[in-house]
């Protein structure tokens, strides 16, 4: 795969083209499984890690602080895979020469980890209520909490008149969400 092709794939990933996911998934599935077979994990676990690795790659490309990607997609994917495996196996050693935004990767891995800190039941309630928000609120909160956009970037992206409108819109959305959750909780979810 030549560099232009990689850049093109990355561009598509950045634009949120999800069809490209399938292409990447299918292309590197077998090589990844054989690469990861040296770790003592069964196939289901490896597939799970592989899927998370692809999504972490997509996340890193879209939301990480990286300007250019010079390696092959395979290099990125396998580095992330290794990172994810080590995390799963609770290896203390850090994957050093990862050509990506490791902070973001670490962050992503923690956020998608279901077993940490919060009650899953409560998070499900959050998701449910989030889905009941208006499209605009969902978009704004998604850009801020998930994509890591600053309020200024959100203003630009969503075409708000000024910074303060975004700021107050964001607190309104959060407040609305909080109320939805509160009322649901009072009604016993």
């Amino acid at each position: 795969m030549d560099r232009d092709h990689v850049q093109q794939l990355i561009k598509r990933l950045k634009n949120g083209d999800s069809a490209v996911l399938e292409t990447i998934y299918t292309k590197y599935r077998k090589p990844f499984l054989s690469f990861a077979s040296r770790y003592n994990l069964d196939k289901e676990e490896l597939l799970d890690i592989y899927q998370d690795s692809i999504l972490a790659l997509v996340d890193n490309v879209r939301n990480g602080k990286i300007e250019t990607l010079d390696s092959t997609l395979k290099t990125y994917l396998f580095s992330i895979g290794k990172f994810m495996i080590f995390k799963k196996l609770k290896h203390l050693e850090v994957v050093n020469e990862l050509p990506l935004d490791t902070n973001r990767l670490e962050h992503y891995a923690n956020e998608i980890d279901n077993q940490r800190v919060y009650e899953q039941e409560e998070l499900e309630l959050f998701k449910k209520c989030f889905g009941q928000l208006g499209k605009q609120c969902q978009e704004l909160l998604n850009l801020f909490y998930y994509r890591g956009y600053t309020l200024e970037e959100i203003q630009e992206t969503l075409d708000y008149d000024n910074y303060n409108v975004v700021k107050s819109q964001k607190s309104r959305c959060l407040k609305h969400l909080k109320e939805l959750i509160k009322s649901k909780k009072q009604n016993g979810f």
């Binding site: 992503y108 919060y118 998070l123 959050f126 998701k127 909160l141 909490y145 998930y146 969400l177």
Partner: peptide, 10 residues
């Protein structure tokens, strides 16, 4: 929690 639920959802 908002953040984590959005992450999980995505």
């Amino acid at each position: 929690k908002v953040k984590k639920s959005i992450f999980q959802q995505e």
